[in-house]
């Protein structure tokens, strides 16, 4: 092992022999260790154990994922198409590159290259920043579109949201009157629904409105101009959804037929199954917990950067960089599992 090789000679050089009382140790050697090697090995074992606990922490979520997906594959097949694979792929690359710079930083610190270590740590930190920014963009889209968990899942918004956002002409809500085809401008490509499908889409899209205020649906949502209808519906959608309107029978959207919606270039085939919110619950807990770990990792790397600039590390003593690196790699590794499990399922 390279690290053990690097640490071994130091321990002999740095610890004065014959000093049983522990004075004059290497400044980074704590009093209860005999040698830097022992200290390094202990730190490394401790970090691996900690990583094991992290894996188990996420293990619970992976377990929940497996159970929900096994019981209801249709939810995952349907809902994952709302995730943006492009952003996900970019984020994967960002994290992999940051893992590379981190690994390089560990090597540099083992060689005592202080400036290079600092630079690489800074780059790794920036990778973390990039990842979180992209994640924030993705989250914002999801929030905007009501693609959220449990009680906050609001299927009406991802109709409205994209329609407005991309300036598409018509809106599903307009079709609540039961007439002309309504365009749903997801992904910039306005596409017409079959009238019947759009009608039910509109009705379900108005979720609370259709369920809780049936009169409102028919009277208010039959305006002359579709734009007003859309904004009225959007205003409706801003009302915090109550639990009742979200019951499966009411949220169930059953536009049979090839009423394909376009989301980010993906075709959404088939009807929306019940309990789509599970997928987003899983998505947000897994990526959210992972995001917290990225933030924690960034804090660690920021601290390592400060210490590196200060000159704490040398070829004699690089344990914190090594351990911080291990942690960062684990955070990356978890994402490597999250990305295909959430974004790339077929």
């Amino acid at each position: 092992m390279q690290m053990a090789d690097a640490a071994h000679p130091i321990s002999h050089a740095a610890v004065p022999h014959g000093d049983a009382h522990g004075h004059g140790h290497h400044p980074n050697l704590e009093h209860h260790f005999d040698s830097l090697t022992q200290q390094f090995d202990a730190g490394k074992l401790g970090m691996w154990l900690f990583l094991a606990t992290e894996v188990l922490l996420f293990g619970g979520l992976f377990c929940a994922y497996a159970i929900f997906r096994r019981n209801h594959p249709e939810v995952f097949m349907y809902a994952h198409q709302y995730l943006d694979t492009t952003w996900g792929a970019i984020n994967t690359v960002v994290l992999l590159v940051s893992s590379f710079t981190m690994a390089w930083a560990v090597t540099a610190s083992q060689r005592g290259q202080r400036n290079l270590t600092s630079l690489l740590l800074a780059l790794t930190f920036l990778g973390g920043v990039g990842f979180m920014v992209i994640k924030a963009i993705e989250y914002q889209h999801k929030f905007h579109d009501g693609l959220m968990w449990g009680t906050h899942y609001d299927p009406s918004k991802h109709g409205h949201g994209h329609g407005e956002g991309h300036g598409a002409a018509a809106h599903g809500a307009a079709a609540a009157a039961g007439h002309a085809a309504a365009g749903d401008g997801r992904g910039g490509a306005a596409e017409s629904h079959a009238a019947g499908a759009a009608a039910s889409a509109g009705a379900a899209g108005d979720h609370g409105a259709s369920a809780a205020h049936p009169e409102a649906t028919t009277s208010v949502h039959a305006p002359e101009t579709p734009g007003q209808g859309a904004s009225a519906a959007a205003a409706d959608a801003d009302v915090p959804p109550e639990r009742a309107p979200l019951e499966p029978s009411q949220v169930a959207l059953a536009p049979s037929g090839p009423a394909g919606l376009h989301v980010g270039g993906h075709d959404l085939h088939g009807p929306r199954p019940d309990n789509v919110h599970w997928f987003f619950g899983v998505y947000f807990t897994m990526t959210g917990l992972h995001g917290l770990h990225v933030l924690a990792g960034m804090a660690v790397i920021g601290w390592l950067f400060v210490r590196s600039v200060r000159g704490d590390f040398s070829a004699d003593y690089f344990t914190p960089v090594d351990l911080g690196g291990l942690y960062w790699h684990l955070v990356d590794l978890i994402w490597i599992f999250l990305f295909p499990l959430l974004y790339l399922i077929h």
Binding site: L56, W149, G281, T285
Partner: peptide, 27 residues
């Protein structure tokens, strides 16, 4: 213990955010 950790986090998420994993009303 980490499994307890995630269980309790999910319980908190359920109670505070309504995530619905353990709620039969939400499936």
């Amino acid at each position: 213990t980490p499994v307890l950790g995630i269980t309790l986090l999910l319980l908190l998420a359920e109670r505070l955010l309504g995530i619905g994993f353990f709620d039969s009303e939400l499936g």
